[in-house]
């Protein structure tokens, strides 16, 4: 038997997976922008007499220690969680580009210097960095996004840096330089598009990873204040009741898993499309 050299269609390229991923992300976007369209209940409304109800028809995800509906809270928590995820990625994305471009295009000593700085910072576990930053920046969604965003800058910086370096020494950039194009034009026309392409993919997937980190920090008490409906905070509060009320922790976590899964699938899909176009 001979293996067919033709690549098999990867699982994540199957329409079903793409459909699922984009469908879920659209759902999340709607939930983030107009949560009341999906669940009109007040996520803060307490009903002490209905505390700790296990999932049933009225409360598909059950209720928490104050009798609040978990489904409602998960839906309303989308905005907060996505904002932290997207905000942090935006920060690390722009930070990474500035660092990477400066390093990749600057004179030799700048290149060396920034390369070393990126290497040094990259070695720091991002979660520890985020923990330190968020402890000094204070608690809440904004500081959390900022802390994680800054912590992830070295990762993005490293990627842009190496992309810029490889593009810079590529034939067409050298040709453009030989033709006397201004450095700005070269950067805009050649360096940026080529360096950014893989970065867009990483950023898409990064949103998911960032949400996981944010949830981790919320879990340690550094995130959005309870009773804010935020996935990590909800899990953190639910952890104490895990022995009797597993639904407090399971469902917010499940939404994180599905979000990360969707962004990964979409990111990889994007990656194949972009690769296909560039070759």
């Amino acid at each position: 038997m001979v293996i067919t050299p033709k690549k098999l269609i990867a699982w994540e390229q199957l329409p079903i997976a793409i459909l699922f991923a984009s469908g879920f992300l659209v759902f999340l976007l709607v939930a983030a922008i107009i949560p009341n369209a999906i669940s009109a209940t007040d996520p803060y409304a307490i009903a002490p007499r209905h505390a700790f109800l296990s999932p049933d028809w009225n409360h598909p995800f059950g209720t928490d220690q104050s009798g609040r509906d978990i489904l409602t809270r998960v839906i309303h928590g989308t905005r907060q969680s996505l904002l932290v995820g997207a905000g942090a990625v935006a920060i690390s994305f722009s930070g990474g580009i500035i660092l990477g471009l400066a390093g990749g295009l600057g004179p030799h000593w700048v290149q060396k210097g920034i390369g070393a700085v990126i290497d040094v910072l990259f070695s720091f576990p991002a979660l520890i960095l985020a923990l330190l930053f968020s402890a000094s920046l204070g608690t809440g969604a904004g500081p959390l996004a900022l802390a994680i965003g800054i912590a992830a800058v070295p990762g993005y910086g490293k990627m842009v840096f190496s992309q810029v370096l490889s593009v810079r020494h590529s034939g067409y950039v050298e040709a453009a330089m030989a033709l006397g194009h201004t450095p700005f034009a070269i950067v805009r026309q050649h360096v940026l598009p080529n360096a950014l392409r893989p970065l867009i993919v990483t950023a898409t997937m990064g949103v998911g990873q960032t949400i996981v980190w944010a949830a981790g920090l919320s879990f340690l008490g550094l995130g959005a204040p309870p009773p804010t409906p935020e996935w990590g905070t909800m899990m953190s509060m639910g952890r104490d009741f895990i022995a009797d009320a597993w639904w407090l922790t399971l469902f917010p976590g499940l939404f994180i898993v599905l979000t990360v899964l969707s962004t990964t699938i979409l990111g990889r899909f994007l990656q194949r499309r972009l690769e296909g176009r560039s070759s």
């Binding site: 009773p227 953190s236 509060m237």
Partner: peptide, 13 residues
Amino acid sequence: APADRTLWEQVQA
């Protein structure tokens, strides 16, 4: 403690 926090959430409500 989370329970105390919940208590104050209910005071808030």
